[in-house]
């Protein structure tokens, strides 16, 4: 197969993957950076970046899907580095994606989202990565291992540790809320 055929095959595969992966990448990026608008832009950039590097992609080795998520992961890291100082507060980030059902329901959902985004900040970077890829991008632990370049076992451990941390953090927050209500 000639180089141009390879490139055409790669571009076609990328266009096909867009249909299944764009939404998953947006979800993954959103949970990592907490900004819905930027997540959509970054997810779009992932595919353009992949197209630029399609000639260098080898069909053997990691699957194309894992390669896309690696690109997404790198873009997220760059984004977080650049925006470290003006990261959205969890409440703003949550309000960005409020659903349009009713204002009251929206407000409640916004608060819940904000609380969860805040709890996610207690996770280590690796734990957050694994939770985002497993729960939101819907990757299996083996696919996640390929993206984060760790073993399957390590991914499972990170997943379990992340859930335990979230449980403690949320329980502590709820405890504070109950106390505050009891006190007030």
């Amino acid at each position: 197969m000639s180089g141009s055929d390879e490139a055409k095959k790669g571009a076609d595969a990328l266009a096909d993957l867009f249909e299944t992966e764009y939404g998953r990448i947006v979800r993954y990026v959103y949970v990592r950076i907490g900004d819905a608008g930027a997540a959509e832009e970054l997810a779009s950039d992932v595919f353009l970046r992949a197209l630029e590097g399609i000639d260098a992609f080898e069909w053997r080795g990691v699957p194309m899907q894992a390669w896309l998520f690696r690109i997404a992961r790198n873009l997220v890291v760059d984004y977080l580095r650049k925006h470290a100082r003006r990261k959205l507060a969890p409440l703003d980030a949550a309000a960005e994606v409020a659903s349009p059902d009713s204002p009251e329901e929206d407000a409640l959902q916004t608060m819940e989202r904000a609380e969860m985004l805040e709890a996610m900040e207690y996770l280590t970077a690796a734990q957050r990565e694994v939770v985002s890829l497993r729960f939101f991008a819907g990757l299996s632990s083996q696919e996640t291992a390929q993206v984060v370049k760790r073993s399957n076992g390590a991914v499972r451990e990170l997943q379990s540790a992340a859930l335990k941390t979230l449980r403690h953090v949320l329980a502590a927050k709820q405890g504070r809320t109950v106390q505050a209500k009891g006190g007030g």
Binding site: Y22, V26, R27, Y30, E40, V97, E112, F136
Partner: peptide, 8 residues
């Protein structure tokens, strides 16, 4: 998942 799910 339910709390933070977001679809573009």
């Amino acid at each position: 998942r339910q709390t933070l799910d977001y679809a573009p």
